Computed example of a mutant assay.
Amino acid sequence: MIEPDPDADARALASTLRLRILRLCLDEARTNREIAERLGKNPATVLHHVRTLVDRGFLVAEPVRRGARGSREVPYRSTGKSWRIPPFPGKQQVMVNAFLEELAEAPDDSVQMTRLGVRLSPAEHAELLDRIDGFFAELAEREPTPGGDPYSMLFAMHLDAGRIAEPAEPGA
């Protein structure tokens, strides 16, 4: 049992590389060597990050298996815990950076993006966020579709500071 520690969880997720590792181990267990090869990183560096994720319960080790040359390999799988972590300072930037790295690897014809500016009342804003959170929660709880294609999604919404009316100067 991993002791609850929101600060330790936040530190564990405050790394673009760690978020990429979690995504790689989402659908299938991967060994440290497989993760390092896929990300083009040094296996020792990746092992440090894998151990951090295991220590905080974001990855779980599966039974040891034999590698190509008979070596012992430990495959790791994402637990889904990262989906339930509350916001922490810098979380948005780390998530965007991980998404941008994954996006750079995606085939151009597989990417669909929309950018939209809207005006919403506080009630409409709350309703939209509830609907989006509900939809993402539903997707996170679904069992993966056997043979389905893996997709990565990022939803971001922010107050559009550039469109906020400047307050009128006194006497103007």
Results as ranks from 00 to 15, higher is better:
Phe88Leu: 06
Pro107Arg: 14
Leu103Asp: 01
Ile85Ala: 14
Ala106Gly: 08
Pro89Asn: 07
Gln93Asp: 14
Ser110Glu: 11
Pro107His: 12
Gln112Asn: 00
Gln112Lys: 05
Met95Val: 06
Gln93Ser: 12
Leu116Tyr: 08
Phe99Lys: 03
Lys91Phe: 01
Ala104Cys: 05
Gly117Glu: 10
Glu101Phe: 15
Gly90Leu: 02
Pro107Ala: 14
Met95Thr: 09
Phe99Leu: 04
Glu105Asn: 04
Phe88Asn: 10
Glu105Pro: 00
Gly90Ser: 08
Thr114Trp: 00
Gly117Ala: 13
Val111Lys: 03
Gln93Thr: 13
Pro107Tyr: 06
Pro86Met: 02
Gln93Ala: 15
Ala106Thr: 15
Leu116Ser: 13
Asn97Lys: 14
Leu100Tyr: 02
Ser110Met: 05
Glu101His: 14
Val111Asp: 11
Leu100Ala: 04
Pro87Ser: 10
Phe88Pro: 04
Val111Pro: 10
Val96Trp: 03
Gly90Trp: 02
Asp109Leu: 01
Glu105Gln: 11
Leu100Gln: 05
Ala98Thr: 03
Pro107Leu: 05
Leu100Ser: 08
Lys91Gln: 15
Asp108Ser: 14
Val96Tyr: 02
Asp109Trp: 04
Leu103Tyr: 11
Val94Phe: 10
Pro107Asp: 15
Ser110Trp: 00
Gly117Lys: 09
Pro87Tyr: 02
Gln92Phe: 09
Gly90Phe: 04
Phe88Ala: 11
Asn97Trp: 04
Glu105Leu: 11
Gln93Glu: 14
Gly117Ser: 15
Lys91His: 09
Ser110Pro: 01
Gln112Met: 02
Lys91Val: 08
Ala98Lys: 01
Leu100Val: 05
Glu105Cys: 10
Asn97Arg: 15
Pro89His: 10
Arg115Gln: 02
Gln93Leu: 09
Val96His: 07
Phe99Arg: 01
Pro86Val: 09
Pro87Arg: 00
Glu101Met: 05
Gln112Ala: 11
Val94His: 07
Pro89Gln: 07
Leu103Trp: 12
Gly117Trp: 06
Leu116Met: 13
Val96Gln: 06
Val96Lys: 11
Gly117Asn: 13
Gln92Ile: 08
Asp109Thr: 07
Asn97Cys: 06
Pro107Gly: 13
Ala98Met: 02
Pro87Phe: 09
Gln112Glu: 04
Asn97Val: 05
Met113Asn: 07
Met113Gln: 12
Pro86Leu: 01
Gly117Leu: 12
Ser110Val: 01
Glu101Leu: 13
Leu116Trp: 04
Asn97Asp: 15
Ala104Met: 01
Val94Pro: 09
Glu102Ala: 12
Ser110Ala: 08
Gln93Cys: 04
Met113Gly: 05
Val94Asp: 03
Asp109Val: 08
Pro89Leu: 05
Thr114Gln: 00
Glu105Asp: 14
Ser110Phe: 06
Glu102Cys: 04
Asp108Thr: 12
Gln92Met: 07
Phe88Glu: 03
Gln112Ser: 02
Glu102Ile: 10
Pro89Glu: 14
Ile85Tyr: 04
Ala106Arg: 09
Ala98Pro: 03
Pro89Asp: 10
Val94Met: 06
Ser110Asp: 12
Thr114Gly: 04
Gln93Gly: 09
Pro86Ala: 14
Phe99Met: 12
Pro107Gln: 07
Leu103Glu: 09
Asp108Phe: 07
Gln112Thr: 09
Pro107Lys: 12
Gly90Ile: 09
Lys91Gly: 10
Asp108Asn: 07
Gly117Cys: 11
Asp108Leu: 13
Gln93Ile: 05
Asp109Glu: 15
Pro89Val: 04
Lys91Cys: 14
Ala98Ser: 11
